[in-house]
């Protein structure tokens, strides 16, 4: 295992609308708790995306920053190179849509994405706002997904990706699934600190880089998960 885990947070100046920093902080904390040193790079949209990172994160944002973010990522090419090298990526909400072939702009017009995931998104009829719970693809071996969604997007999954989960409550992609994954790229509508509510997902991203991880004391994570799942799922 390498000495230092490199986390790259892409475009917090454009795409960090609501608590997206939480995913960075949770990855750092859960690595640290296992004695793994981390180094986090905040890449502003005027700067190049480094290609040598281990885990990349991109967050949510308004329509206009989303379009700007997609343009700059395409022009830059650094993220593509990193993913081809085998780096992991968690893309959230607007960042998730950007990873596809197309997404909906301010007026619903199609805007080209950057094509890292075989998905296409458009604007839905109504805003999906609220708590979401979903059963994760058994192949990933993760417990129930929990989080908050706030988006207008509807996302169709192509044959090149698998749904991350099937919704128990909430809207997600709009077809009964929520998020998707392919290789080491994960996309989700669960915005902001999705990893705080789903520490096992954080550990999955970490383990793709570091190999198997020992368990850690994380009772506050579990307490919050239990409370939120109890609040939205019939017992």
């Amino acid at each position: 295992m390498q000495s230092e885990l490199s986390i790259v947070w892409i475009y917090p100046d454009l795409l960090s609308t609501y608590g997206d920093q939480g995913n960075v902080l949770v990855l750092e904390q859960r690595a640290r708790a296992r004695g793994i040193q981390t180094r986090t790079v905040h890449v502003r949209s005027s700067d190049p995306v480094p290609q040598q990172g281990d885990i990349y994160l991109i967050g949510g944002g308004e329509d206009r920053p989303q379009i700007l973010g997609a343009e700059r990522l395409r022009r830059d090419g650094g993220l593509h190179a990193a993913i081809q090298r085998g780096a992991a990526l968690l893309a959230v909400c607007a960042g998730y849509q950007i990873m596809g072939t197309v997404f909906g702009g301010e007026e619903g017009q199609p805007v080209p994405g950057i094509g890292l995931l075989d998905i296409s998104s458009g604007r839905g009829e109504r805003r999906a706002v609220g708590e979401l719970a979903a059963e994760v693809d058994p192949a990933l071996g993760l417990p129930t997904l929990t989080g908050f969604e706030n988006h207008m997007g509807v996302t169709r999954l192509g044959p090149g990706v698998r749904p991350l989960s099937r919704t128990l409550t909430g809207i997600g992609n709009g077809d009964g699934t929520e998020g998707c994954y392919a290789g080491r790229v994960i996309g989700t509508y669960l915005h902001g600190p999705a990893l705080a509510r789903n520490p096992a997902l954080a550990d999955l991203l970490l383990s793709w880089v570091t190999g198997p991880l020992p368990p850690i004391e994380d009772s506050w994570y579990q307490a919050l998960r239990d409370e939120r799942l109890r609040a939205v799922l019939p017992s």
Partner: peptide, 9 residues
């Protein structure tokens, strides 16, 4: 606001 994500900001 029903969403507590802002705590992480």
């Amino acid at each position: 606001g029903r969403d507590t994500s802002w705590l992480w900001d």
